[in-house]
Simulated scan of single mutants.
Amino acid sequence: MLTTGLLVVIVLALVFDFTNGFHDAANAIAPAVSTRALSLRAALALAAVMNLIGALLGTGVAVTVAAGVISTPGPDDGLQVVIAAMVGAIVWNVTTWYFGLPSSSSHALIGGLVGAALASATSVRWDGVLEKVVLPMIISPLVGFGLGYLLMTTIMWLFRKANAHRVGRAMRRAQIASAASLALGHGLQDAQKSMGVIVLALVISGNQTGYHVPLWVILVCAVALAAGTYSGGMRIMRTLGRRIFHLTPPHGFAAELSASSVLYLTAFVFHAPISTTHVITSAVLGVGATHRRSAVRWAVAGDIVKGWVLTFPGSAGIAAAAYLLAGLATGHFGG
């Protein structure tokens, strides 16, 4: 039965998906747009379509979010916990988008769940958070950086004697495929997180007993993410595509291919909800590191890392405050 609380969760999950889309659209298309491999609108359309397809390809990450982060809250205030978590994630997404900071929507959502759980005395599955969130959060950017560096080094060696103009033109065409690959990985990873939240709400409300993801949940989350992606995210795009390192088509291709490889591996093999933002930003830094040190604006990269560090506690704090404020308004608290 669809209660008011469950409907609120579904709406907020789709709003989160939409903000995730315009917040993270830059991840998939900034390199291709900045190197002029694609026009802005063509890149957004490609990213939206591939996000939609990617969202339909798996549910392993969704199950991790639904069952592996916090214990299932009780029916009394369980939906209130999930609503507070979504508020924390959405507010953090909008705030970092406003300041043009490519933070992680994924970790904003996980932080929101943990913050709301702590405020409501719901148990947090710290082993799951460590294994499926914290460790991948640390390892995936390092792998993205390393792959970006190695792939760019390989490209430079393979084409060291080739005509630079011809290589650039060929890489521009190849970037269309790598941008599509990255957008597919983004859809595969990020749409599943809101799917997991809706599944958690369905279990709490008694509308289903297991953590399987219904088809209608997959479809509405996929459409919301694709719509948000098409709306674009120019503020973050400027940071990722221009302010960190001046990308050329070979750099863009290497960064996109490296990042998408990490996304596929973690989604299909480990079912870990990693950050698309972290991985593509690290890959951009990796390809930039193949040049002189001064070519990369490390100060900008440092500001981005600060945003990464603040995301988890920031969204958790907002979610906890949202839960407590709702409790004051209704006179009801979990315990």
Results as ranks from 00 to 15, higher is better:
residue 214 P to H: 03
residue 150 L to K: 00
residue 101 L to I: 15
residue 187 G to V: 06
residue 196 G to A: 11
residue 149 Y to H: 12
residue 209 T to G: 15
residue 81 V to S: 05
residue 210 G to Q: 14
residue 204 I to M: 10
residue 165 H to D: 14
residue 162 A to Q: 12
residue 220 V to M: 15
residue 114 V to S: 01
residue 158 L to G: 05
residue 112 G to V: 03
residue 193 K to D: 03
residue 174 A to H: 01
residue 97 W to Q: 05
residue 170 A to D: 05
residue 90 I to A: 02
residue 144 G to T: 06
residue 180 A to E: 02
residue 95 T to D: 00
residue 77 D to V: 14
residue 206 G to W: 11
residue 216 W to G: 00
residue 104 S to C: 07
residue 131 E to V: 14
residue 150 L to C: 08
residue 98 Y to W: 15
residue 78 G to P: 07
residue 150 L to S: 10
residue 112 G to M: 02
residue 126 W to G: 06
residue 135 L to N: 02
residue 153 T to D: 11
residue 131 E to L: 12
residue 83 I to L: 08
residue 131 E to R: 13
residue 178 S to K: 03
residue 84 A to G: 12
residue 93 N to D: 15
residue 167 V to M: 10
residue 184 L to P: 01
residue 203 V to M: 04
residue 128 G to Q: 09
residue 97 W to D: 01
residue 142 L to C: 13
residue 142 L to M: 13
residue 181 S to T: 10
residue 208 Q to R: 09
residue 131 E to K: 15
residue 123 S to I: 07
residue 165 H to M: 06
residue 149 Y to G: 01
residue 198 I to L: 02
residue 98 Y to I: 13
residue 213 V to T: 12
residue 132 K to V: 05
residue 166 R to C: 03
residue 184 L to G: 02
residue 220 V to R: 04
residue 203 V to K: 05
residue 186 H to D: 05
residue 103 S to H: 02
residue 196 G to D: 09
residue 149 Y to L: 15
residue 205 S to W: 11
residue 112 G to L: 04
residue 87 V to K: 02
residue 85 A to I: 12
residue 184 L to K: 05
residue 172 R to C: 09
residue 124 V to Q: 11
residue 193 K to F: 04
residue 211 Y to Q: 07
residue 118 L to Y: 04
